[in-house]
Design a protein around this nucleic acid. Sequence first.
DNA 1: CAACAGTACCTATAAAATCTAGGTATTGAC
DNA 2: GTCAATACCTAGATTTTATAGGTACTGTTG
Lengths: 119, 119
Amino acid sequence: MAEENGQNMFRRGVMPLVVLALLKREDMYGYQLVQEIGRVSGGRLSVQEGSLYPILYKLLEQGFISDRREPVGKRMTRIYYHLEPKGETRLEALTREYETVVSGVYQFIHRDKENDDER
Amino acid sequence: MAEENGQNMFRRGVMPLVVLALLKREDMYGYQLVQEIGRVSGGRLSVQEGSLYPILYKLLEQGFISDRREPVGKRMTRIYYHLEPKGETRLEALTREYETVVSGVYQFIHRDKENDDER
DNA sequence: CAACAGTACCTATAAAATCTAGGTATTGAC
DNA sequence: GTCAATACCTAGATTTTATAGGTACTGTTG
């Protein structure tokens, strides 16, 4: 169904990269990340909370980010996520990988009869 | 494990797009597609045959491509796949979608402190 | 002509990421 | 006090791809 409705299916795998990139600028909490991803991408990307939290927990496990609780109001606490040095390295690696794949795909979709690689 | 080994995980979903793009230039058979995908992408992309055939069967079901058998040698037949008009439309739609997602992701990874969208 | 790498097709199962569809509780505006 | 918005969370289904096989033909080399 992800393919039937033209929505997306190319954002598969990009969320950890996007989250790390956002956290590089500033610490954020889960709900805020969901909003920011929609806002910054101009609606081109989006995540449900139900998708985001498992991603955050995995990034935590892997030591790429850390979390801390901050009280808001009387009883509520927000959980802020912070990019760790290890996560910064990971961000750079993922960015490189992403651009590799994109340039690979572009070989196919931006190829005209003239300049090709036929042999 | 796709995430553990730094290989890839961003090529998720791109194979139908790549296959349609290749078939736009000329009819190809399965094994040939596997070779071409590695060759044209300069190794940036790759598929196993076990991954490709299910993708081809789905594209057939959806009417985006058609197939025909052609004899080679004495007993063997190759199955060539051909891009149908419906598939051409699909290719255009997928290309647009891919570029939308890529530009969305680039909002995050190519953003510097100066020109941003903070409010 | 036997052996073997390469060509060419195929399937079943597992793995990984995300979506769907819920759930609970707090806050702030009216 | 009600209700939308904020803020967290989980379980299970869905989708795509990888893994790991399998069969059979072709062409080259010794």
